[in-house]
Design a protein around this nucleic acid. Structure first.
Lengths: 259, 259
DNA sequence: TAAACTATGTGTATGCCGTACACCTCGCGT
DNA sequence: ACGCGAGGTGTACGGCATACACATAGTTTA
């Protein structure tokens, strides 16, 4: 516990606990982290600088360094705070598949609320309390399934990748739109038009066929972009879980070899 | 073609073509891009700054701005250059599955060679020649398959997500190790030890069981880390493609409803 | 009550970054 | 011979993270 890297130690200690009798907080670690998370949510992680953050709290840049020894440490704290595991996951569906779907949905909700989470280096999160908890819950969901523990880990990693990818798509889009001067619909229309101009039969035959066949015409009766995003999410999730199901089935009936 | 965003225009124009008879190149766009790619490959994208790049070429910072109007534009050029589609993909396996596997493998090779590609904003790549070509090849691989064009797009996007996720894991790891002062094995051991310390039965029962059950004990007879990474790659890819297979099967035999 | 200590906040300075802008200097076409 | 324009440079600005010396005020101790 004592040789933990600087930032992690704070996360695993049972709160500051006010060393002697020092009063007069003024600033507070949690206030800082909270403000930073809010700022990142609203204006993107890129706009969170030590000086802007301090100013938004009514203090000077350097005051933050009394609470955090480096910006990376602040990011780690923001990360762990945002990834707090909801209590829904204390009680699980019995079946592995609905359980995993729930696990994914909850993570998706978090990533949706804090798109910048996707940006934080994965190795940074390794020893974080929230991360270990998520891992634990995921493994519990797969508790009764006939896979090796290593394979279970692989499955969770695969799902995590999918979730992060979805988050990334959303975050990149959001950020691009933020930088655009045109209104969102117009910008998107512009890109679609551009694609249609560039995709010619000689260079991109298959793509052209797909575009004409409705690659950009959206499925079913959607209007609501939210519904579209949900449908896309479920499409990918279902493919992956079907693949996992296949693996499990094969484990259960190992006799049938391919002819 | 004329209203393309600044950076894209250059990518779609048939090469600079030396306006009149200006000689004395000295610097060259392609030399710059090449050097930037090399630097990013070797020392990470973070170490590519305009001044360091210029210095490595023997020029001053500002000289680069004669060839590129902004650093983002340079990144776009690096991106397109690195993503050039290999000619292997001009000729494809007939079967969709081996074709897609090939498609993925080739992308993986590129991402492996240029880990920083993963960092470039996805929306940035949309209109890029290389990106459209990759899309075209992927759709061709799925040419004979009974899915809607929209679904084909979804499948390709899903696979792309997986590829990017793998690249991201590798890139983050590499970068972390670069920042470490300890040698790689030692650092990795340190993390493993840390995990084992933190994972206690009361807070993480399922995780503890998994750790004891071999979550970190690697599968089969691997020693070579490369072989391990390959195995992980194939595991994920197989799950996803199995899921796609299921969908296709269901399309071919739509009669059988679940009882 | 006075003195010392210390947690908290500030101001200044350094060295990076991207890039705007004014300049300089060639070699070519006139 | 001249001037024009392309290619290269130097300087300067504002923003970034952060090191370090300093100011201040409240508690603890003498």
């Amino acid at each position: 516990m004592d040789e933990l890297p600087e930032g992690l130690r704070r996360l695993w200690s049972p709160e500051g606990s006010a060393r002697q009798g020092q009063p007069r907080p003024g600033l507070t670690l949690s206030r800082i982290v909270e403000a930073a998370v809010g700022m990142a949510d609203e204006q993107g992680l890129g706009s969170v600088s030590m000086s802007r953050l301090a100013r938004s709290l009514g203090y000077t840049t350097m005051s933050l360094y009394r609470y955090v020894s480096t910006k990376d440490e602040l990011l780690l704290l923001m990360h762990d705070s945002a990834w707090r595991v909801p209590t829904v996951l204390d009680d699980f569906p019995e079946q592995w598949r609905p359980a995993l779907v729930l696990w994914c949905r909850e993570q998706r909700t978090i990533l949706h609320r804090h798109p910048w989470l996707e940006r934080i280096r994965i190795t940074e999160r390794v020893g974080t309390p929230s991360q270990l908890t998520w891992m634990d819950r995921g493994l519990r969901a797969l508790g009764g399934v006939p896979l090796t523990e290593y394979e279970k880990g692989q499955v969770l990693l695969l799902l995590n990748g999918f979730l992060f990818w979805q988050a990334r798509l959303a975050a990149d889009l959001q950020e691009s739109l933020r930088e655009e001067e045109r209104p969102p619909e117009e910008a998107i229309m512009g890109v679609a038009d551009m694609i249609k101009t560039l995709v010619t039969a000689d260079r991109f035959p298959a793509l052209l066929r797909a575009v004409e066949g409705g690659l950009f015409a959206l499925p079913q009766d959607w209007q609501d972009p939210q519904a579209g995003a949900d449908a896309d999410f479920l499409f990918g999730l279902d493919r992956i879980l079907d693949g996992v199901q296949d693996l499990i089935d094969r484990r259960l009936a190992p006799a049938a070899l391919p002819d």
